[in-house]
């Protein structure tokens, strides 16, 4: 993932040239970022086809709205992944809604099989949380959360579970789950904003 400052500068330049309708720069931006962003979409949506549709829409959006990228607000990669993540989550909500309403009609062994295949090698969200934050200040801050808070954050972030889906998954009342998420995010934010111990800042 391109998060080094030099990479960020390069990506920001490519975004600026994309905003100026430079299609070659846009292509390079795609080459550099699509594997990471496709991974993000695939993680949330499971299925190749859906993730590819979301990726396609996201890059068309980027082409049309590259000018609205504000370098002061976020790193280029963060901005790009926010476009993909938002679209993937929107799509997921839409899919789940239609899956629910067509549950009787869908009787396709092939589809189920594909779902199983897609689901098989997936890493556990909590494991991903640990891997992602290794050596980061975020790791230290996640450590200040209670276990249920941390678990619900991981499930929401990596699997796109909504409040009500989390409640079903964790077999806890909706209000409790909402409170875990709210307090978890609150603590995380406060911790990240504190000066904090130097050792954990890396």
């Amino acid at each position: 993932m391109a998060t080094q400052p030099r990479d960020n500068e390069h990506l920001a330049r490519l975004l600026a040239r994309t905003a100026a309708r430079d299609h070659a720069a846009f292509r390079e931006l795609y080459e550099l970022t699509s594997a990471h962003l496709f991974g993000v979409a695939l993680r949330i949506l499971h299925r190749n086809e859906r993730a590819e549709e979301v990726l396609q829409d996201a890059y068309v959006n980027v082409w049309n709205q590259a000018g609205s990228y504000a370098a002061g607000l976020s790193a280029p990669m963060t901005w790009l992944s926010s476009v993909v993540r938002n679209k993937a989550l929107d799509r997921l909500r839409q899919v789940r809604l239609s899956d629910q309403s067509t549950v009787v009609l869908v009787d396709d062994e092939g589809e189920e099989f594909l779902d199983q295949v897609a689901a098989a090698p997936r890493a556990d969200p909590q494991e991903l949380l640990l891997q992602a934050t290794d050596g980061l200040r975020l790791r230290h801050c996640l450590g200040t959360l209670d276990a249920p808070q941390r678990q619900s954050l991981a499930l929401a972030y990596y699997d796109g579970l909504s409040h009500s889906e989390l409640a079903a998954h964790l077999q806890a009342p909706l209000g409790t789950v909402k409170a875990w998420i709210r307090r978890g995010l609150d603590k995380l934010k406060q911790c990240l904003e504190q000066p904090g111990p130097a050792a954990a800042r890396k």
């Binding site: 699509s34 993730a51 891997q131 992602a132 990596y158």
Partner: peptide
């Protein structure tokens, strides 16, 4: 919030789209 949570994406495996 995107900026705060962005590091969590580091562990998601990359994949090559078609």
């Amino acid at each position: 919030w995107h900026e705060r949570l962005a590091p969590l994406e580091r562990s998601i495996p990359q994949a090559t789209p078609g």
